[in-house]
Design a protein around this nucleic acid. Structure first.
Ligand SMILES: NC(=O)c1ccc[n+]([C@@H]2O[C@H](COP(=O)([O-])OP(=O)(O)OC[C@H]3O[C@@H](n4cnc5c(N)ncnc54)[C@H](O)[C@@H]3O)[C@@H](O)[C@H]2O)c1
Ligand SMILES: NC(=O)c1ccc[n+]([C@@H]2O[C@H](COP(=O)([O-])OP(=O)(O)OC[C@H]3O[C@@H](n4cnc5c(N)ncnc54)[C@H](O)[C@@H]3O)[C@@H](O)[C@H]2O)c1
Lengths: 258, 258
DNA sequence: AGGAGTTTGTGAACGTGGGAACAAACCGAG
DNA sequence: CTCGGTTTGTTCCCACGTTCACAAACTCCT
């Protein structure tokens, strides 16, 4: 999913580094993707005043298997107490620290159109470890407009902003044709993590992380399964030969139709 | 990622069904998630007037390994020509058919706030196999407003709309606390595929697919890797004991600090 | 026709992820 | 202190996903 350079090196380097303690070495990607879910569940429990929880309870809240939860947490360290469970506040802090959201990360958003406006107005950003540092757009007509306390600035100022605020994370919400150019400029300015909303594959150099959020892909995946569910009931005859493009050069032993 | 009931049954049922032709039986989930990417790449090639492409070219355009691409396509059937490559139009149609986007899917969007407005205005929906059938919101103050050609309707009308238009896919863009209730109502109305933008784990009955799009999880994953990149250079000393909550009952052989 | 060059489709090896099951560790009662 | 009950951390095993590598199949040139 993440088109990242293979930075974590050999996973099978077996006992090469005796001094490596557990929390320093390679947490599996699948686990990393679930830690935020656990963190959110813990926050919810904490807000309800619950001080302790078992792996079973937390797993249910996070929508996963309890065995998986325990294994995931074991990559961070031994933060539970056998026979008791996990201290909610303590575990919450440990996960937040591991993810890196104990302090705020500044984020720039590029492309303040439909989607960019929604993102800029979104309060869920700042509530968990992220702070919008700047809103950028190439369209002079949009520049100066204030969205959610911040003015829209010219995209040209990206280098200055990255240098000044130490921004490492950029969000791309421009139209697809502009995304690669914007991405290149962000990388050149020093951005090393990109969240891409534009429906394009972005090429980035080694060391830069890209994650994509792609609405139409998600819908298409749902459509595939939906079609499958329907097909299991209806059994539509496969092959509507009218609208089907012919297989081009497929001269299977030269047996044409005529 | 998808909290779906195990519908594809035993994957290791080895040769149980001799009559099952290739395109009918279980395409791997990882492959399904990539098919839309291939489809988009093919559309781009097609728009450029390119009639034929090799697996290498298509793989590059899609940002994947060519071996992976070929294996993925092999689950659909043998649609290429050895020594030549793939016919762009033909492959495009085959993938679209497999995903199920040769005809349009009606979609309802629930919660027309910041994000819902952006979605309703988004043209990328209709351009690829989806059509917004209705916009719903529980707030009477919003009802009647027209967004992107469609009026916002009362959420109560969901059953009627599902029955009338045969809607199978719902998008949830309400605040998190309302999401589960909305989800339950959608499922009761007959919706069997849900795309959830609210930061909550949704519980659904067997046979209903849920996919989530979670901005803050994506950012946290980026933050984790970002922290790691920084840590490999800086080597910040691990353990800021001041802000660290104490491990609660951890009386490791009763050796207290004092 | 035959051979050189290309490119697909797939078998096999390898790595990653998920889940059951269990020993180790902890608590509280007596 | 010991014992029974509880819950974690970990091990083992299997399924899934990725990549390599190569035979099969096709085109084009001679
Ligand atoms: N709107 C949605 O709900 C939605 C959903 C999914 C995906 N997307 C994707 O998100 C992206 C943005 O969608 P949108 O609806 O907000 O589009 P939009 O046209 O409303 O906004 C795009 C903004 O990007 C700016 N822009 C264009 N080129 C730029 C450049 N080179 N540098 C900086 N800014 C530039 C434009 O001035 C504009 O303000 C698109 O790629 C779209 O496909 C949107
Ligand atoms: N805005 C963003 O950029 C963004 C980004 C990521 C995630 N999200 C998530 O998407 C969701 C929507 O975000 P938003 O910013 O649009 O919020 P919003 O408050 O602007 O809009 C929510 C809308 O849902 C409606 N609603 C509330 N309860 C409802 C119910 N029971 N039934 C039907 N409609 C109901 C409200 O009337 C409102 O119009 C939230 O869960 C948010 O966390 C938003």
């Amino acid at each position: 999913m993440t088109s990242r350079g293979k930075r974590f090196g050999a996973p099978h380097d077996g006992a090469s580094r005796p001094t490596a303690d557990k929390s320093e070495r390679g947490i599996p990607e699948a686990t990393v993707a679930r830690l935020p879910v656990y963190l959110r569940a813990l926050v919810t429990l904490s807000d309800r005043g619950i001080a302790t929880c078992s792996s079973e309870e937390l797993a249910t809240a996070a929508g996963v298997n309890s065995a998986k939860l325990r294994k995931d947490l074991s990559y961070l360290g031994s933060y539970g107490t056998r026979g008791v469970g996990y201290d909610v506040e303590y575990l919450r802090y440990q996960i937040a620290r591991e993810i890196g959201v104990t302090q705020d990360w500044p984020v720039v958003i590029v492309g303040i159109g439909n989607l960019g406006h929604a993102l800029a107005n979104y309060s869920g950003f700042s509530s968990r470890g992220f702070r919008i540092a700047a809103l950028l757009d190439a369209d002079p007509g949009r520049q100066g407009e204030v969205v959610g306390d911040l003015p829209i600035l010219a995209f040209d100022r990206i280098e200055e902003l990255v240098a000044e605020h130490g921004v490492a994370i950029g969000v791309i919400a421009t139209p697809a044709p502009a995304a690669q150019a914007v991405c290149d400029r962000l990388v050149a300015a020093g951005i090393t993590s990109i969240l891409n909303f534009a429906p394009t594959v972005l090429a980035v150099p080694e060391g830069v992380d890209v994650r994509k959020v792609d609405l139409s892909i998600e819908l298409q995946i749902l459509a595939y399964h939906e079609q499958r569910k329907a097909g299991l009931l209806d059994r539509i005859d496969p092959g509507l030969p009218d609208t089907t493009p012919a297989m081009p050069g497929k001269t299977t032993t030269a047996k044409a139709v005529g």
